[in-house]
Design a protein around this nucleic acid. Sequence first.
DNA 1: TGTGTTTTTTAGGCTTGTCTAAAACACATG
DNA 2: CATGTGTTTTAGACAAGCCTAAAAAACACA
Lengths: 218, 218
Amino acid sequence: MLSFAEENYLKTIYHLSEGTSNPVSTNAIADTLNTRAASVTDMIKKLSNKGVVTYQKYRGVRVSEEGQKAALQVIRKHRLWEVFLVQKLKFNWDEVHDVAEQLEHIKSPLLIRRLDEFLGYPKYDPHGDPIPDESGEFKAKPQVALSDCKIGHDGVVVAVKDASAAFLQYVDKIGAYIGAKIRVIDRLEFDGSLEILIDNKKTVFISKEVSENIWIEE
Amino acid sequence: MLSFAEENYLKTIYHLSEGTSNPVSTNAIADTLNTRAASVTDMIKKLSNKGVVTYQKYRGVRVSEEGQKAALQVIRKHRLWEVFLVQKLKFNWDEVHDVAEQLEHIKSPLLIRRLDEFLGYPKYDPHGDPIPDESGEFKAKPQVALSDCKIGHDGVVVAVKDASAAFLQYVDKIGAYIGAKIRVIDRLEFDGSLEILIDNKKTVFISKEVSENIWIEE
DNA sequence: TGTGTTTTTTAGGCTTGTCTAAAACACATG
DNA sequence: CATGTGTTTTAGACAAGCCTAAAAAACACA
């Protein structure tokens, strides 16, 4: 059984591993969790003893098979609670993260099974991220960042990667929420910013950074 | 801001204070929480420094005005979550306690306000206990234990005081759940046990102890 | 009212999760 | 391939929350 803190570290290591085959560095974990490298080293030893990560001194850390399972269950709980908060309790999608961060650590398999059922077995959370099932299986929607689209390309927003309240409020304000139709009108080469048309109604300019965090279906 | 452990101690002290004007003893708290007297003394000092209890060495502890407010908010959360678990997630009432024990510590005023709204502002939890409002106000249903009823007295079950799963399953089995109609048929003087008629259908014998934990409307 | 019993507190220790400062290591670069 | 820079680990400390064992206070009752 993992503690709250252990679950948080494991989840973070899992997320930092996504998309690379490289081990995760101590500093990267410390930055993400706002702790210090020394604390991370301590915790990695504990997680390693419990078999959920593999670790070589000075060489970074990888999530083990078993650790992956555990991490996906935490992520499953987090995303199910986010669906609950938005769909049932009418939270704005920028308000859910901190609360889900707490709720994800509640220990009760029955609770999660019943919550899943109550919500109608959702496949995606309010940010468009896939919800793993009880055995850890999930399928991401095929998707591409606006920053990687050619000019003229269009599609429907399926995911928003930055979960900070400030970013989500901005996305909401320009109307680029999940389900919105977006066409890439133009790209400024010198800073990578984009001009986009939203829902065939209005065009806005977004920075390169923003365009890297809004994903449309492929 | 109180920690999980501090909230648990405070809630326990509050419950042990109900119905008496005497201070609560260290041992009583230790017994309830399955900790040792020494741990209780440590914690009482912390709570006292935070101003939520008043304390004299060797003389027991009382919940302060401010502590009462805090305790009632924890109780409010606990009971709202119980309603959610039973009404929305179809938990049996003997399954809710442990989970609610965890959920009651989630910190988010918005969450509780929205949950309350979502549930339709319930006044009582599944065990018949009143749910305090945001300012700590609540009204218990006028009620009396079966053990204090005269022979021939009848009424509807409004509360069940023992929250252990075993007891609740027993109550369920004999059909004496909340809302059931009960008439006291006879009392055996030598052990205080009762013969009762449930929902005008069947009579059962219950021990004195059981009769002290089933309450009907007055 | 003195004395034995029970309750409570103190003293000291352990684990978890955090920190700072210093030492050890890795790695890029000249 | 030596060295300097940045990263990671170790060493040692601290707070929270728990424990056991022993000392102190309260209480019960002869």
